[in-house]
């Protein structure tokens, strides 16, 4: 009997540790996501639209989850330096220039990308500031 009690106490402690770590991460995610939403409205929404739907064949939507996943390490560079190459989103080619947003801090980029990669039907989790900093060092 004593053995079971000890075991269950141990298990509860383990579960509690697991959940507290998890919620710390999820609190950070929530904060990044909601700050990201405001940054998105200020810096991106005019062109990509509040719902991420873009504009005709002029401005691509942000709903191409596969593109976002495959180019995850390039996203910060695209925001900071803009884009002049053509890209294919949801099977449609876009050739217009995307203007650079050079003034954004790494933490804001992390929040923005957390929002973009989790809104509009995307679901790719936290985009941390360390990831942004690492990727920015490799911009072409």
């Amino acid at each position: 009997m004593r053995k079971y009690v000890l075991l269950s106490i141990g298990l509860t402690v383990l579960v509690a540790i697991f959940f507290s770590a998890c919620s710390e991460e999820s609190i950070k995610y929530q904060r990044y996501y909601s700050d990201g939403l405001n940054l998105y409205k200020t810096h991106c929404g005019n062109c990509h639209m509040e719902d991420g739907s873009g504009l005709g064949k002029l401005i691509p939507p942000l709903t191409d989850t596969i593109y976002l996943k495959e180019n995850r390490d390039k996203l910060a560079c695209i925001i900071v330096y803009g884009l002049s190459d053509s890209i294919v989103i949801n099977g449609i080619g876009y050739k217009e220039k995307m203007p650079a947003e050079k003034h954004l801090a790494a933490v804001d980029l992390a929040k923005l990308l957390t929002y973009v990669t989790n809104a509009f039907g995307n679901n790719q989790g936290l985009y941390d500031i360390s990831e942004v900093e690492k990727n920015l060092r490799n911009c072409k």
């Binding site: 929404g45 005019n46 062109c47 639209m49 504009l55 005709g56 002029l58 401005i59 203007p99």
Partner: peptide, 13 residues
Amino acid sequence: CPSICPIMSKNML
């Protein structure tokens, strides 16, 4: 135009 035009075009559309 990088500022308000895309939203205007979208709404006009």
